[in-house]
Every structure is written in structure tokens, then in C-alpha cells.
Amino acid sequence: MSRLKRWARELLVLAILLAGVLWVMDSSRAPQAPLAFADQPLHTLDGQEVTLNTLSQDRPLLVYFWASWCGICRFTTPTVAEMAQQGGNVIGIALRSGDDEKVQRYLQAKHYQMPLVNDPQGRLSANWQVSVTPTLVIIDKGQVVSSTTGFTSGWGMKLRLWWAGYR
């Protein structure tokens, strides 16, 4: 029994260390929202003009910075698109993935449907200081409440959205 306790204690210490390292990495790579970001008009591929403030008033919003050329995004984008199709409050921002037509073809080929803002030159992403794809930002009532970078599971995304609405 003492051997089992020792293993459990070592696993706990390892989990705490891993969580600390991940927190430091997320903190150092966290995007910085530009001034008045919430009311900046954004234009989606389907022609709508939206603001992050409006989209995040009733429930937390997942803002998903991604790219068609990003290897990790190949694993996270299907989950985000599925959340959007199931009625989740999601908007994607395609970073340097080509012109509107190219991004639209990419989405159609992959069968992804989600509200999407194209950022072909990366200006919007640069204003947010997004340095890693994918980057996920949770906004509630026009305020950034959480962000993470790299791979995140569907449950991780849903948990972050739930926590933002709960707080």
C-alpha cells in the first residue's frame, strides 16, 4: 500500500508541475486585446458586420484564431466548427490563409460551417498580438476573460465557456 501512495504522490506532483508549466506558457503567449476591440466592426465571409461586444452580450463567445496551414488547427478546427453547428457562440478568424475565395473553398472542402472573419494579411491578429495558432479567446460582455494557445480539446473549450458564463 505504501508503494501505491508514493506513486500517487509522485503523479500528483508531476500533474502540478505540468499545470504550472502550461500556465506559464499560456501567460507568456496570451494575446493582448487592442483598445476598443469589443466595438470594432468585423466583416464575416457571409457579408455580415458584427462586433465582439454584441456577440458576447447574452453568453460567452469563443474567438478562434486559426490558419489553414496550421498543423494543430487541423485537430481543433473540426471541434470548433462542430460547436458552431450545434449552436455554440463561436467566431473564427482565419489568419493568413488566403483571400476570401480561397478560405471559402477550404471551409467547403472540409465541410466546416462557422461564422468567420478572414484576416488575409494578419493585421487583425497582429493587433491582438496573436503569435501562436491556434489561439482561443473567451469574451464575455465585451471583456476578455480567458485565453489559451495550442491544442485544446472540445471539453476544454466547453469548460472555458461554461466557466466564463458561471463567473
Results as ranks from 00 to 15, higher is better:
63 V>Q: 06
53 N>L: 13
57 Q>K: 14
65 F>K: 07
85 Q>F: 06
72 I>G: 10
56 S>A: 01
54 T>S: 14
49 E>W: 06
54 T>H: 14
39 D>C: 02
47 G>D: 04
40 Q>L: 13
66 W>D: 04
66 W>P: 06
58 D>Y: 07
79 T>M: 15
67 A>H: 07
74 R>D: 08
65 F>E: 02
55 L>V: 01
64 Y>D: 12
42 L>A: 01
40 Q>D: 10
48 Q>K: 15
78 P>Q: 05
46 D>A: 04
74 R>M: 09
44 T>Q: 09
75 F>D: 13
50 V>K: 11
73 C>A: 08
59 R>D: 03
84 A>M: 11
74 R>Q: 15
63 V>Y: 03
42 L>F: 04
44 T>V: 05
51 T>A: 03
71 G>I: 07
82 E>M: 12
54 T>C: 03
65 F>M: 08
50 V>I: 15
45 L>Q: 09
60 P>I: 00
51 T>Y: 06
48 Q>D: 08
52 L>N: 01
54 T>A: 15
60 P>M: 00
66 W>F: 14
75 F>Q: 15
56 S>M: 02
76 T>I: 09
68 S>Y: 06
83 M>Q: 13
60 P>A: 00
66 W>T: 04
44 T>D: 08
70 C>F: 06
54 T>W: 08
84 A>P: 10
67 A>I: 03
40 Q>H: 14
56 S>V: 00
52 L>A: 00
44 T>R: 13
55 L>E: 01
79 T>G: 09
57 Q>E: 13
58 D>R: 15
58 D>H: 14
48 Q>A: 07
84 A>Y: 05
43 H>F: 11
74 R>G: 11
42 L>V: 02
43 H>L: 11
40 Q>A: 14
66 W>A: 04
78 P>F: 03
61 L>V: 00
70 C>L: 09
80 V>S: 07
76 T>K: 14
62 L>V: 01
75 F>V: 07
69 W>K: 11
71 G>P: 07
64 Y>S: 10
50 V>C: 07
